[in-house]
Design a protein around this nucleic acid. Structure first.
Lengths: 177, 177
DNA sequence: GTCTATAATTTGATAGAC
DNA sequence: GTCTATCAAATTATAGAC
């Protein structure tokens, strides 16, 4: 793996646990075993790292959705993939969604990062709206906005109260026919 | 108003916008017009301020619920109050829930703060469960976990994409009979 | 690509005067 | 309660050698 990706992996992991401002270049560099000055070769400013982090996260996320779309035509199977992408973050990785974390800190972040986060949410709402439409659900767009909200919120609440039933409750709502 | 409450007001406002680590004692003191050293008289450590912030926030929140409980016996009216406490944060104040913000940053915060945040969520789930039970809703506890999640998540998503319809979608779900 | 060295700033926190 | 003065540590960032 490239050093650039190693940096992004560690930064993503730590920021999804602690937030943007609680993670320093020294933290990240220390875990890799290099000096913080070396990070600036890959990402001149911290904001550059943050933006790239969100873009990579969003691309990975939406690539997984695309992959699922090519595996099945059943809209409910596709929605299940969308749910599991959120669910597994907490259940398997014990991590929140990067964009939920950055969304919660929005006014403390560089504007470039906020734009990327907003794009992520809009794209998710749009994707889920189409999936619900394909499933013949009424008010697909409203339902999609509720679905994105409940999954993001459930990660935060389930993580805080340490109860995966919170995630299950949210998943059931999104998948309800 | 006491100076202590002035400090808490400003700290709460800024941290609900930016997160815990993006707000410094100097920020807060500067807005009041005193020096940061003076803040340590009221709150020796930043963690003390953070804990008091969450406790005050939770007490105010639950006092508003209690007040509503004494105004009406209709469980759906009470649930409406619960919804509006969340909704108005964003719609009227343009702020997220303090505990959603701190919950998103949990591993970057002092443990005392996390405990207070967890208590807030647990108490909300418990309150909403009882309200749904009183309304005769099936699976009241699961529904309550979903309800708390969707409202917290909707604040973050609606704020990011600047679309209050996200909040309305979440509110409708929580109030659906 | 990574290092050393270093600058400039910010931060949480304390001591002691008023 | 607030101030001045001060500190030690941390942080983002740059310059230049290897």
């Amino acid at each position: 793996m490239s050093q650039r990706n190693r940096i992004l992996d560690i930064a993503e992991h730590r920021m999804r646990e602690r937030g943007y401002n609680a993670v320093s270049f020294r933290d990240i560099a220390g875990e890799i075993g290099i000096k913080s000055a070396s990070l600036h070769y890959h990402f001149p400013k911290k904001a550059d790292l943050g933006v790239e982090l969100v873009n990579r996260y969003a691309n990975t996320f939406h690539a997984a959705l695309d992959a699922s779309d090519s595996l099945t035509t059943d809209p409910w199977d596709r929605i299940k993939t969308f749910v599991d992408l959120h669910r597994n973050a907490l259940v398997e990785q014990e991590l929140l969604c990067l964009c939920a974390v950055f969304g919660a800190e929005s006014r403390g972040l560089p504007e470039d990062i906020n734009s990327a986060v907003t794009d992520f949410f809009k794209r998710n709402i749009s994707w889920l709206t189409k999936a619900y439409e394909a499933a013949g659900v009424e008010n697909a767009n409203v339902r999609a906005k509720a679905g994105v909200s409940i999954l993001e919120g459930a990660l935060i609440v389930a993580n805080s109260v340490r109860d995966n039933e919170v995630i299950e409750a949210a998943s059931d709502f999104v998948l309800q026919r």
